[in-house]
Design a protein around this nucleic acid. Structure first.
Lengths: 199, 199
DNA sequence: TCCACCATGTAACTGGTTACATGATTAC
DNA sequence: GTAATCATGTAACCAGTTACATGGTGGA
C-alpha cells in the first residue's frame, strides 16, 4: 500500500511537531528562517500536508483559544505519529540510500537524538558513514576508470560529487566524536577528547 | 507569460541534446548510468519532457529509418533551442542562487565549456565561487551566533551544511586552476583534496 | 485610520512517480 | 521460440508552486 508512503515534507513536519507542538504558521517560519530552508514554507504546501498527516491520524490539531489571540490550530503528534516517526528514524541505512537521498538521511539525523537518544544517533552516524564509504569508493573507481576519456567539465563535475561525499564522510567522523564527547563530558567532566576505541 | 520557464529536467535534456543528438532512450541511459543520476530517467518523465521541448520548438525529433532498426526518434537542438540554452547558461550567478539551487548551477557548469567555451566556464566558476563565499560567511555567522543555544544534533546538521558549501567553495578553486592549466598546457594534475577541520 | 504582521486557507496548474502496455529486434 | 533488450509511449495519481483570498490584531 502506498498509504504509509509519507513524502519528506511530511516527515519534516511530523518531526518538528513531535519536537514541539506547533501551528502551520510556526512551521512555515521554521522552514523560512532557519537553515532548514530546503523545505517548502509555502502555505500551499504546508497546510495540505498537515491535513494529510491529520487524516492519517499521525498528528492532531486543536484550536487554541487563548484570550484575544486569533484562532491558531496547534498540532501535536499522536501516539501513532510518534511511532511512525520512530519507525522511519530506525530504518537501517542501506548503501544506495546515500546515492538517492542524502537529504533524507540528514533530515532523519536532525530528529534522531530527540526521538531516539544519543546512542541511536551515534549508530545511525556509523551506518551512514559506512554507506558513504562504499559509495565513495565506487565513485572514485568510476573516476579512475573513466576520468581519462571524459571532457574536462565532466571530470570536474564528477570531482565535485566526490568531494561532496568525501566531505559528508569526514563530517560523520566529526559528528561521532562530538557525540561521544558530549556523552563522556556529561558523565565525568569537561575533559579533553578521550576517543573511544572501536565499537 | 511563463514562456521561458523550463524545468531543470528540460534544461538537462536540452543540454545533452545540444551536445549530441539523442533519442529518448539514449537520454534515459545517460541519467540511469552516469553520475547524472539525480535526474529522472523514468519514461514518464523523459518522453513528456521531450514533447514539451519540441512543442516549444527548442528541439526537433526526426525518426531515424536506418535499415533494420526499430524506429528511433532522434532529437536535435533547433537554433531557438541552442539560443535558449546559451541564454540560460549565461545568466549571472546571484548570491541566493547558491542557497536554493546548487544542483542547477552544477548542471549549468557541466554544459558550460561545450556551449560557451573555457573562458566562460572560468568566469562562471569565479562568480559561483564568490556567491559561495558570501553564502558561507552568512552560514558561519549564523552558526557562531546560534551554535551555543542549539541542540547538538541541530548544530551538527548545520555544521554539515557549512562543510558541504565549504567543499564546493574549495572545488571551485580547484576547477579554476584546472581550467587555467588546461588552457596553457592541456594537462591536468590529479585531484588533491583540501580537508578543512571544523571551525 | 491604515499598515504591518499573524494566521489559515483554496484553486489552477505543472511536472514527476509508478505502473502498465506495446511492439520490434537480436541472441541463444 | 523465447528471453532479453531496444524503444516509445500512456494513465492515474500525487504533491508542490504561484497566486490569490480572507480576516484578526496591535501599534503608529
Amino acid at each position: 500500500m502506498k498509504r504509509s508512503d509519507i513524502p519528506l515534507l511530511g516527515y519534516a513536519l511530523l518531526g518538528l511537531i513531535d519536537l514541539k507542538p506547533s501551528s502551520g504558521y510556526d512551521l512555515r517560519k521554521v522552514f523560512a528562517e532557519t537553515a532548514m530552508g530546503n523545505y517548502s514554507s509555502s502555505p500551499g504546501a504546508i497546510y495540505p500536508a498537515l491535513e494529510r498527516l491529520e487524516s492519517q491520524r499521525l498528528i492532531r490539531g486543536v484550536v487554541e483559544d487563548a484570550a484575544g489571540l486569533r484562532r491558531r490550530r496547534v498540532y501535536h503528534a499522536t501516539a501513532i505519529g510518534a511511532t511512525e516517526l520512530r519507525k522511519w528514524l530506525s530504518k537501517t541505512v542501506k548503501a544506495d540510500d546515500v546515492m538517492r537521498g542524502a537529504p533524507e538521511l540528514m533530515l532523519r539525523f536532525s530528529f534522531m537524538d530527540h526521538a531516539l537518544g544519543a546512542d541511536a544517533a551515534i549508530s545511525f552516524l556509523q551506518e551512514f558513514r559506512s554507506s558513504l564509504k562504499s559509495y565513495l569508493s565506487g565513485l572514485e573507481a568510476y573516476a579512475r576508470a573513466n576520468g581519462k576519456k571524459m571532457p574536462l567539465s565532466g571530470r570536474l563535475a564528477l570531482e565535485s560529487g566526490i568531494r561532496s561525499y568525501r566531505g559528508m564522510y569526514d563530517w560523520t567522523g566529526y559528528a561521532i566524536r562530538a557525540y561521544r564527547q558530549s556523552l563522556t563530558s556529561q558523565r565525568i567532566r569537561p575533559a579533553k577528547t578521550e576517543r573511544g576505541g572501536p565499537k
